[in-house]
Design a protein around this nucleic acid. Structure first.
Lengths: 208, 208
DNA sequence: GGAAGTTAATCAATCGTTTGATTAATTTTG
DNA sequence: CAAAATTAATCAAACGATTGATTAACTTCC
């Protein structure tokens, strides 16, 4: 059994992720991270070399966690539509279970500078994209899907989810709605999944 | 009438917007703004009071420009589908003609801090949302549209466009693609409009 | 000549990082 | 086993650089 002593390295990572999510990378100072984590400022550079090193480590851990989550879906002997529905369900669940991180990732992606970060995020997302791409392309080739603009459909699926995460009050205009409330989150998850599955079903399989 | 001499005030606004888009608000220094605009640093505070004042002014001018652009569509004696198609066309054109600003706006929207900006952006976007909402709801009520999750459809339309703006290389995986190239931008505009119009037509009007 | 515009110089505050020293735990050695 | 040597973890303090902002002097223009 692990000792009860607090792991400062981990504390720094968690505090930094929280602060990066709330105030952005540039908007967060190493002193804030130190204060929030209860660690000394020097520990940040001791463990991670630099402030950017902390960010990179957060990304690496997250991406590793995500990568270990996929893979299985595409091998199943099920229809392309069923595959797509499962991917949507998994994708919505994952992102809406990590809204703060996803917001941060998206924010940093929209910065043209900081190419190391940009490439890392892009690589992480491209796995999902390729998975969806193969499923839809496969469905088109075997005739179960209409011929559509595949990359645009992917942009629609991912964009819809991102939009819900970043501006949930646009979807739920009630004033007391809160994405951190588990009950509200569950509701929006179910609505998002139902909507995207319905949308893709109708758009991809309706014979004109 | 204004003289022909370079308007430093305007130069500061344009330089600041460019830099805020590229490196974020926190990531841009007043010295960079001064250098890029060719103005002295003190001019920033002279005209706008503070760095944040520059940001607020950029937002105000943009939002004012946007507001003066809508309105007409919803009064025309055309079908709900035709209205929606026109809104999509206008929305895609507007956002893809101001990609840098839209990226910045989206980034600031995802920060929980800076509530004044957040509310300003939210209000600006809610006009578009209400317009789309009324069109779709109207179409459902007169029976031309299927009964759908209206807010989710809006999230899909807006999310798709935002996704294309922020991560265009996901849609166009060619290495030499550039959103700043007018030819490439035109192509992606047309594709986005065609896709969203096709998607909404099929999804909203297909009889099951 | 006086208001508006512009400048270089300067301000206190904060930035990310580094330092040298200290503690606590572990390994090596006699 | 216990003293000595080594290592990892932590700390307060300070580093030089940069931040947004301000000052006071200078120029331009009506």
């Amino acid at each position: 059994m692990k000792t009860e002593k607090v792991d400062k390295r981990q504390a720094i990572l968690e505090a930094a992720e929280k602060l990066f999510c709330e105030t952005g990378y540039e908007g967060t100072s190493t002193r804030q991270i130190a204060k929030e984590s209860g660690a000394n400022m020097a520990m940040i550079n001791y463990y991670f070399g630099s402030k950017e090193g902390v960010f990179v480590e957060i990304m690496n851990e997250r991406i590793a966690g995500f990568a270990s989550q996929l893979k299985i879906i595409n091998e199943d002997k099920i229809s392309a539509l069923e595959k797509l529905h499962r991917v949507i369900e998994g994708y919505v669940n994952r992102i809406l279970s990590n809204t703060a991180f996803h917001k941060m990732m998206h924010r940093e992606l929209s910065l043209t500078q900081r190419p190391a970060m940009y490439d890392k995020i892009k690589d992480a997302m491209s796995h999902n994209m390729q998975l969806i791409d193969r499923i839809i392309t496969g469905g088109i080739e075997d005739g179960t899907f209409n011929k559509v603009d595949v990359r645009m459909v992917i942009a629609t699926i991912m964009g819809t989810i991102t939009n819900i995460v970043i501006a949930p009050q646009k979807v739920m205009p009630c004033s007391n709605f809160d994405l951190n409330n588990p009950k509200d989150k569950k509701m929006i998850k179910d609505r998002a999944i139902a909507h995207l599955q319905d949308l893709t079903t109708v758009y991809l399989t309706t014979k004109k």
